[in-house]
Nucleic acid binder design. Sequence first.
DNA 1: TTGAAAGCGCTAACAG
DNA 2: CTGTTAGCGCTTTCAA
Lengths: 355, 355
Amino acid sequence: MVTLADVARHAGVSASTVSYVLSGKRSISAPTRERIQHSIDTLGYRPHAGARALASSRTGILALMMPLRTGLHVPVTTEIAMAVTTTARSHGYDVLLLTGEEGPEAVRRVEGSAIADAMIVMDVGRDDPRLPCLLAAERPALLIGLPTESAEAADTAGLDCVDLDFEAAGARCVEHLSGLGHTRVAVLGEPSAVHERGTGFAARTLAGLRAAAGTHGVGLLHRPVDGTYAAVAAAVTRVFEERPGTTALVVQNEAALEPLLALLRHQGRAVPEDISVVAVCPDQVAVHASVPLTAVSVPAQEMGRLAVERLVRRLAGETPRGTELIPPLLTARASSGPAPSDSVPTEERRGRGGR
Amino acid sequence: MVTLADVARHAGVSASTVSYVLSGKRSISAPTRERIQHSIDTLGYRPHAGARALASSRTGILALMMPLRTGLHVPVTTEIAMAVTTTARSHGYDVLLLTGEEGPEAVRRVEGSAIADAMIVMDVGRDDPRLPCLLAAERPALLIGLPTESAEAADTAGLDCVDLDFEAAGARCVEHLSGLGHTRVAVLGEPSAVHERGTGFAARTLAGLRAAAGTHGVGLLHRPVDGTYAAVAAAVTRVFEERPGTTALVVQNEAALEPLLALLRHQGRAVPEDISVVAVCPDQVAVHASVPLTAVSVPAQEMGRLAVERLVRRLAGETPRGTELIPPLLTARASSGPAPSDSVPTEERRGRGGR
DNA sequence: TTGAAAGCGCTAACAG
DNA sequence: CTGTTAGCGCTTTCAA
């Protein structure tokens, strides 16, 4: 193994000079620097990670805690993880992969053994036992996702979060549909398990949907569904029974999308002529669905990138903690269109409860 | 920060004694051990990872190189990664996540900076530039997947691999179908891009299919397909044109599965009454498909677990390198059944090329 | 602009 | 069964 001392000897300088060439923490004359660089290249020297960590108390490692639970979108999660890793590398960091399963113990382990400089934690729930550990830790932590009702609450709690602005996303969906003349919208949301866990995003989307629905005079019906054909069929059937005039669906449930489209096809409801569908899902899913979907994209890549960049800045002592919400972007594709002209709600025509 | 010296002082022993309690590398009297353990708990001591790595030249970290390329099954890959991480933790190891994108440079980096004790590499192609680096490295490496034509070739090359026995898997599919009376089978395989990359698994499955087809007198037609509805439709249409008597499909292409089932439904071909479908895919996909699929499962969890266990054993100096293929397991579900009785190939009835 | 030297916290001989 | 001690390879004062 080639050590820094070897390089120093080869270049005829002291160890510290080599170290300073590497870190750039003091100015070195051009000739010396070049000579040392040449020795480094010739010998194929690489700093020993452990030695460096011990001496500098910096590891060059970011810990990434990934959820292992089911019910969460594996592709999105993976895409975020890959973006985190790629971005981290571009800043000279490596990524240590932890599973959410380990819980708060993993946080303590990272903290206590100084195995990483900072942590990125995904899928943090409202009363997540990891939160207190994270807040107590010396090392900076960044959450992907908002474990609170609002960005303000997160800031108050002293958290540092990156997430999609799901509330705005919900609003954006309603605006889009309202602009197309829809007045009766049903929401197919995440399975109730997701809601109960207190993961904020489902609730925040719903809040945004409701607020915008109020503003635009749109009637809203919310149904959590599991991602199976049977569950989707049951939910959709009930929706049309309770609200025959429904002309649009907002879907925030990746697993339910294809079953839904198959069901509508089977029922002879044309998308978007008879019914519009707007999704909240990754672009890739929206594009490759059997009907290209109008959707607010979940920007997995950007979330991962942003998380790392904020964290790296914090490690450099630059930025204070705080929450950053990514503005939603709705892309209109083939699944949404004008509300059908004969869409006067059936119940009104029947006079049932109409005025 | 609590150091080993702090613990030693608190317990009234020397540092080395504490170290030995931690490592168990020499016997300590019960009273002393208990006293020390008590001090460790009281002070909340955790060994400093960097210091330990420097002194022992062991990091307790396994590097996992994950593919970033498209065209590979994200869910399978992720499941393997999670199994690797979980298993690694159960053996006291952490996992460092690397992307395949970094290529051979990452291998050298891990090796040179001693940031991990060993590497697990996924998705290694036939002339993968990482292979020479891996073989040259001091640290053990384990491949998930076989970059060669056969297990023997891998062993000869000095590799250490874990993979599903895709050849046996292919054979198993044919046996199953042959046992049900099918004599004309078409194979919908991975997109040709996957084959060209030299990733062995597609070719090995095909070899197994062909060999068993020969033995059982089954006619085989192979078509690589992309995972889009259009591509699947085109391929299937051609298959039925060229071989009207085809009564079964073997599918090794996760993305093509649902489009295929939708297409068959659309064409009015009942599964399995008119046509049987056998897949090579993860159990979860097979179970949740719109028709529960008879399938050879790709045991992602087991592959990850096995990889780590082999590697940990090698790090303990136990096992030599070598290839371990997991025997395939075919589970019969709703998508396969007896060959239709009127399945005498149309071409024979027409006498076209018949005898 | 450079060097010398004192650790960082732990492990593993060596010595008792 | 336990203690003493010499590093592991690097960073970073302090001194020149």
